[in-house]
Nucleic acid binder design. Structure first.
Length: 330
DNA sequence: AAATGTTTCAACCGCGTTTCC
DNA sequence: AGGAAACGCGGTTGAAACATT
């Protein structure tokens, strides 16, 4: 014996915008139960609402929930969304878990109506996070300034987010991606080595545990051969967030000068460590490595990554072994 | 001031996954 | 174990608000 059909298909069930009375009835019903809904399907009948349970759930989770944050997205939130989208794609619910008080629907809408357009104006493909060909750039607004290695930009972005995100994890994932790109294209070796050097510096500075969520997702994509993301435009925060001079100065400060009193990583908060590391990268810790013999550097720089928590072992995983073997040809 | 175009976002739809019988 | 319902997610729609002509 199965379950009874969903009420969504009942002809008499109301659809469309919710009235204040309906909102009140739904909130009161859920509050009476101490915030526990139980079965959404049974909720409309229990609360006296002529709505589908699915509609009630949507209304509650996207609008009526007391912990929902209202108002405009901050610049930090915007950057976080972009970073997460670059890593996860359109996994709105997963992205929403990293933004307190924001719903997946709200983030999705914000992406489609604001961020997506900004990226296009900057000449960045919002799907791949790679630069569009010049003839695809909208309004002739191309990214300005020097493009730094992607991992540095990610580090700077994550540091700017204030520690809510694991900078080292993002860098690791990006490096894995670049590894594949370098292997495939033969022309990214220098950047890859520079970034591996930067990653080592990050890890040595106390990078945290890799979130399985992000890495697993990335590994899945890598192993299936999916074209992965390179959000190098993240250096261009100011043009993304609205050409604000103050922001430009803050950004410049972020990547060019260490915060006062943080010359040593000992005793500082993780977010500060990330910020310091990002600043260190920008002060060209990476450049000497790029001048050395590529293969020698490459082998040495990969070593520390093998011990990363949550990251598959480059020694034991045959997939990565094969890739590394192939890579020695470039 | 009216018409038209554009943007925004709440809500719906359909599909894949999970849970239940 | 297998089928069906419920759930949750991402894509899409459409009405309202806002901007432009």
């Amino acid at each position: 014996m199965g379950r009874s059909p969903c009420c969504c298909h009942d002809a008499g069930v109301k659809k469309g915008p919710w009235t204040e009375e309906e909102d009140r009835a739904l909130v009161e019903h859920i509050q009476k139960r101490g915030g526990h809904v139980g079965s959404w399907r049974g909720l409309p009948k229990a609360s006296g609402l002529n709505r589908c349970g699915k509609s009630c759930r949507l209304r509650w989770t996207n609008y009526l929930r007391p912990d929902i944050k209202r108002g405009n997205f901050s610049d930090d939130e915007e950057r976080l969304i972009i970073s997460l989208h670059a890593a996860l794609g359109n996994k709105w619910s997963t992205i929403a878990t990293q933004l307190e008080g924001r719903t997946d629907n709200e983030i999705k809408n914000y992406w489609n109506t604001h961020i997506r357009k900004k990226l296009l104006r900057m000449g960045v493909d919002p799907v791949t996070h790679q630069q569009l060909p010049p003839d695809h750039i909208i309004d002739g607004a191309s990214p300005s300034g020097t493009l730094l290695p992607e991992s540095l930009l990610w580090a700077a972005a994550a540091a700017a987010l204030g520690g809510g995100l694991d900078t080292a994890a993002i860098m690791q994932a990006q490096l894995l991606q670049q590894l594949l790109h370098a292997i495939g294209s033969n022309n990214n070796t220098t950047n890859l080595i520079a970034n591996l050097t930067a990653s080592n510096a990050m890890l040595n500075s106390g990078g945290g545990i890799v979130p399985n969520l992000v890495l697993q997702d990335q590994m899945n994509m890598l192993s299936t051969g999916a074209n992965y993301l390179q959000p190098g435009y993240l250096c261009n925060f100011s043009s993304l967030a609205g050409q604000d001079m103050v922001q430009q100065q803050q950004q410049q400060q972020l990547i060019s000068s260490p915060a006062p009193g943080t010359s040593s990583s000992a005793g500082v908060e993780p977010a500060d460590q990330h910020r310091d590391t990002a600043a260190g990268f920008a002060s060209h810790d990476v450049s000497p490595a790029a001048d050395r013999a590529p293969m020698e550097e490459f082998a040495g720089l990969l070593e520390p990554m093998m011990d990363m928590p949550g990251l598959c072992s480059l020694e034991s995983d045959s997939f990565w072994n094969d890739i590394l073997k192939d890579s020695y040809r470039f």
